[in-house]
């Protein structure tokens, strides 16, 4: 009997080393099946081994794009509880064509429901992006943009947060484990109402984790710098002037209210962001924007400036 245990353990260990973490679950399933077949372990033992391996390997990747989309919708609804949407159809249409074009050159061009952009009717300087691709930007932030290239930089920064999954990373570890273990309970079977109630509770927790970070506390400085770096690559891939990000941050420096309730609270100062871009060689010279791009920018958002 002991020998069987030892053998099963040996196979498990050897396989884990061989295959790495990604396929540990498959390996465990196979190894426990072998264990069962040889009579080394009982069926219930093998099940519990599989279950604990499953719990360990749960991660962000276990949320499907569909689930991230539903998380995003509610996070967006919370944002819209704080800020009112602007019904300005001209600006919204312009933001969507600009933003969706940029999203196509990001590292995450396809989301479950795609990318959608909306102007917020506020003089605060602020912007939000959900895991579902809902991106919000205040009128006050549009006023920090002198060109389409600068506005592209702002949207690209938000797309950067989506592509780097910063919203999802704000979910507390314990909450993530809880939510994913409920999801794992039933496999492919339908959920009954007790599970839906449990899931809804976990969902509420996930929403508050994300919105607390996004709206109240802000992401870490490093996340903001990462989103800036992503924005610069997106701009370059679309042949926008990558120096427009630095230019926009320069305008923001002059317009931001220190100690305000908006960007100033949740973001590193624009000066620090410029310094970081310079340090990483991503603060590039501002070149002249073609006249035709200036014209359409003024036509679309000029009345807000």
């Amino acid at each position: 009997m002991n020998k069987h245990y030892w053998q099963t353990g040996f196979i498990l260990l050897a396989l884990m080393t061989l295959m790495g973490c990604a396929v540990v679950e498959t390996a465990t399933t196979v190894a426990t099946t072998v264990g069962e077949a040889t009579g080394a372990i009982s069926k219930s033992q093998s099940q519990s081994i599989r279950k604990s391996t499953a719990a360990v390997s749960k991660s962000l990747e276990d949320f499907t794009p569909e689930q991230e989309y539903y998380i995003g919708r509610t996070v967006g609804a919370v944002v819209l509880g704080k800020y009112s949407a602007s019904a300005d159809a001209k600006v919204n249409a312009y933001l969507n064509v600009l933003g969706q074009t940029l999203a196509q050159v990001s590292d995450m061009p396809e989301l479950f429901g795609g990318y959608h952009f909306l102007v917020l009717d506020s003089d605060d300087i602020n912007a939000f992006a959900t895991s579902g691709g809902h991106i919000f930007i205040t009128r006050g932030l549009i006023r920090c943009c002198r060109t389409e290239d600068a506005l592209a930089a702002v949207l690209a920064h938000e797309i950067g947060h989506v592509q780097l999954r910063h919203g999802m990373k704000a979910i507390e570890k314990a909450r993530m484990t809880e939510a994913l273990s409920i999801l794992a309970q039933e496999g492919a079977k339908s959920f009954g109402s007790p599970e839906v109630a449990q899931l809804t509770q976990a969902f509420g927790g996930v929403i508050s984790d994300i919105t607390n970070t996004m709206i109240n506390n802000g992401y870490s400085r490093s996340y903001e710098y990462q989103a800036d770096a992503a924005a610069v690559s997106i701009l370059q891939r679309m042949s926008y002037n990558p120096g427009a990000l630095t230019d926009m941050l320069g305008v923001m420096t002059r317009q931001i209210k220190p100690g305000g309730s908006d960007f100033a609270k949740t973001h590193p100062s624009p000066q620090n962001r410029i310094a970081e871009l310079k340090a990483s060689g991503k603060s590039l010279a501002v070149t002249e924007t073609p006249a035709i791009r200036k014209e359409r920018f003024t036509k679309a958002v000029g009345h807000l400036l």
Partner: peptide, 9 residues
């Protein structure tokens, strides 16, 4: 439609 879905929303 499982997990965080239309139903949970």
């Amino acid at each position: 439609g499982k997990g965080f879905s239309e139903e949970v929303e």
